[in-house]
Design a protein around this nucleic acid. Structure first.
Lengths: 120, 120
DNA sequence: TAGAAATAATACGGCTCCGAAACGAACGGA
DNA sequence: TCCGTTCGTTTCGGAGCCGTATTATTTCTA
């Protein structure tokens, strides 16, 4: 069953979601992430693993330092972890965390609830 | 007709939208806005006018300099304009622009299309 | 086995944002 | 009229992100 969302509804949904993120001040729910950081986080949790710095950089069309720095920031909040690849020690495997899974789940609920409140 | 969007679908939608914004490189479509800037832009175009610096600051729960700086940035891209209020010269009325309306419309179409491609 | 290639991280200079405080202009009540 | 209040802006020091270039490590290949 495809989801139908008219442009006007889509905009209202975006506004509500962004609005909630901006107003959110819970210490455990950092909301001042960059669009890039947000995208990297969602990609790690929604796309099938394994995820590497190089793979993410290519997928998002950004340079590798952008990924490294974003992982530093996300890691500071314990939303992702890094581990060296035993098979190829040059690689770094990005791993999910319990906190990160909870964060993403909360975000999904937030968006879902906003959608359910949408008018015609 | 209320919109039903399960949390998993909502997350996928967010990922796609953020992803498109991050990858977008059109010179006329600045995609490196802050979550705050994005929210301010959408509020100006979706909520009924008039909009003032003070009003936006209160609504978004941020300080006034945040609004002033965001308007500077959005204004640089010609997405909003400022005009002094003739009735009370202390006030500044924030106005929409053709470019801004087009930007918001494009964003709405982008989100709507992403939603229509969502799986079950 | 020695040199080229690939990977992630770091260094650097520049830019933008932040919050708090201070500021100038305009209003309004006593 | 005068002085407190309101409104938007600016200033200040601090922090974070950016892209480019460079580095250290590991792997591949001739």
């Amino acid at each position: 069953m495809p989801v139908t969302l008219r442009p006007a509804q889509a905009l209202k949904l975006m506004q509500e979601v962004f609005f909630d993120l901006v107003r959110e001040t819970r210490p455990d729910f950092a909301s001042d992430f960059t669009l890039r950081q947000m995208t990297i986080l969602l990609t790690i949790y929604l796309d099938p693993p394994p995820h590497t710095v190089r793979g993410l950089a290519k997928k998002l069309n950004v340079t590798k330092p952008v990924i490294t720095r974003a992982l530093d920031t996300l890691g500071k909040y314990e939303l992702v972890t890094r581990r060296r690849d035993d098979a190829d020690l040059r690689n770094v495997i990005i791993q999910r965390t319990v906190k990160g899974a909870l964060y993403v789940e909360t975000l999904g609920d937030m968006v879902s609830k906003s959608a359910s409140r949408l008018g015609p």
